[in-house]
Simulated assay, not measured.
Amino acid sequence: MTPTAHSAAGPASLGHSLRAAVIGSPIGHSKSPALHRAAYHLLGFDCSYEAIDVSPEDLPAFVESVRAAGNWRGLSVTMPHKTAMVHLVDSVTSLAGVLGVLNTVTVDTGGPRPVLTGHNTDVAGIIGALRHGGVLEAPRSAVILGGGGTAAASLAALQQLGATGVTVFVRSPGLAAPLRTLGDSLGVPVQLREWDGAATGLLEADVVISTLPPGGADALASQLGNLRAPRVHPTRPVLLDVAYDPWPSPLAAAWEARGGTIVPGLEMLIYQAVEQVRLFTGSRFPDPARVLKAMCDAVGAPAR
Results as ranks from 00 to 15, higher is better:
residue 271 Y to L: 06
residue 108 D to P: 13
residue 174 G to Y: 08
residue 110 G to M: 06
residue 48 S to F: 03
residue 92 V to L: 09
residue 284 R to V: 02
residue 132 H to T: 10
residue 25 S to K: 05
residue 220 L to R: 00
residue 242 V to T: 09
residue 260 G to Y: 10
residue 187 G to Q: 07
residue 139 P to L: 09
residue 68 A to C: 09
residue 111 G to A: 14
residue 133 G to P: 01
residue 64 E to W: 07
residue 208 V to Q: 04
residue 83 T to C: 09
residue 231 R to Y: 11
residue 236 R to N: 11
residue 43 L to E: 02
residue 44 G to D: 03
residue 282 G to V: 04
residue 226 N to I: 07
residue 212 L to F: 02
residue 119 H to T: 05
residue 81 H to V: 13
residue 164 T to Y: 01
residue 66 V to L: 04
residue 175 L to C: 13
residue 94 S to H: 13
residue 259 G to R: 09
residue 239 L to V: 11
residue 95 L to Y: 03
residue 298 A to Q: 08
residue 16 H to D: 11
residue 5 A to P: 03
residue 36 H to T: 01
residue 60 P to A: 06
residue 227 L to Y: 03
residue 19 R to F: 06
residue 236 R to H: 11
residue 105 V to N: 02
residue 42 L to K: 01
residue 1 M to N: 10
residue 212 L to W: 04
residue 296 C to W: 04
residue 26 P to E: 12
residue 71 N to D: 15
residue 285 F to D: 03
residue 29 H to I: 06
residue 81 H to T: 10
residue 71 N to W: 13
residue 122 D to T: 11
residue 264 P to V: 03
residue 173 P to T: 08
residue 248 P to T: 02
residue 174 G to L: 14
residue 18 L to P: 08
residue 108 D to F: 12
residue 43 L to I: 06
residue 110 G to T: 13
residue 264 P to D: 09
residue 244 Y to P: 02
residue 79 M to Q: 12
residue 78 T to I: 08
residue 102 L to D: 00
residue 154 S to K: 00
residue 44 G to P: 00
residue 167 T to A: 07
residue 180 R to K: 14
residue 161 L to F: 05
residue 119 H to A: 03
residue 265 G to Q: 02
residue 42 L to Q: 01
residue 77 V to L: 14
residue 215 G to N: 13
residue 213 P to Y: 09
residue 95 L to C: 08
residue 243 A to V: 07
residue 291 V to A: 03
residue 66 V to P: 06
residue 199 A to Q: 05
residue 288 P to Q: 07
residue 195 W to M: 12
residue 12 A to Q: 14
residue 241 D to Q: 04
residue 69 A to P: 01
residue 288 P to E: 04
residue 253 A to W: 11
residue 75 L to T: 12
residue 178 P to S: 14
residue 107 V to R: 04
residue 242 V to C: 06
residue 219 A to D: 13
residue 262 I to Q: 06
residue 136 L to V: 14
residue 244 Y to A: 01
residue 291 V to F: 05
residue 211 T to C: 05
residue 296 C to R: 01
residue 134 G to P: 07
residue 281 T to V: 15
residue 148 G to T: 04
residue 119 H to F: 14
residue 181 T to H: 12
residue 249 S to R: 05
residue 79 M to D: 06
residue 76 S to L: 08
residue 76 S to Q: 10
residue 206 D to H: 12
residue 110 G to A: 15
residue 176 A to N: 08
residue 47 C to F: 01
residue 31 K to G: 02
residue 84 A to M: 12
residue 211 T to W: 04
residue 19 R to Q: 11
residue 33 P to F: 06
residue 2 T to F: 12
residue 204 E to L: 15
residue 42 L to D: 00
residue 51 A to V: 09
residue 33 P to S: 12
residue 185 S to F: 05
residue 284 R to M: 09
residue 293 K to F: 03
residue 155 L to K: 03
residue 107 V to F: 08
residue 228 R to L: 12
residue 32 S to K: 08
residue 103 N to W: 00
residue 216 G to Q: 07
